[in-house]
Amino acid sequence: MAIIFKNFRSKLINSVPIIFLYFLSITEIDTQFSNYFQILSFNLQFIIIYYWVLRDPSVLGNGHVFFAGIINDVIMGLPMGTSPLTYLVVSFMGIYIRNVTVKMTLFTDWFTFILAIFFANLIYLILISNFSNVAITYLDLFYNSLFTFLFYPLFWVIFNSYRALLGVRIHD
């Protein structure tokens, strides 16, 4: 009984990032605060995917990243396949950086995250401007990318504390 409970608890705790990612995609929880500060918006999904792929890929499968993207496209009214592609690009960058980096610190994570945001948003821009009629403001996209980058350390600390709480060694 105790083993079953322990397994269930560990599975539930490990699933929190996936649940959070799906929850962000499926609900009305917004990470844009234009009502308070006009240019403030950021992409929390990018941060979650990048952090967990980089730090603990066993927690966040690529299939979940793909499905979260599909859900996000439906909810946001974007052409289907746009968000999965951008999310998978972030995931790819995370895996690539993990493979080539020996010791990971906040600063290596943070500055390589620029590349992930850049390539993901480049793909997004190319797809939206060439293959759909949806108009977007480049400046808004820029601010969104900027704030996504700026907020990364904050979530890095939160996610690291979460992992530390779980008893996972941070520099494993």
Binding site: V65, F66, G69, I70, P79, G81, T82, L88
Partner: peptide, 10 residues
């Protein structure tokens, strides 16, 4: 998955 996303998009 990237190929699948691209296919769905097109």
């Amino acid at each position: 998955l990237i190929c699948l996303s691209g296919l769905i998009f097109f």
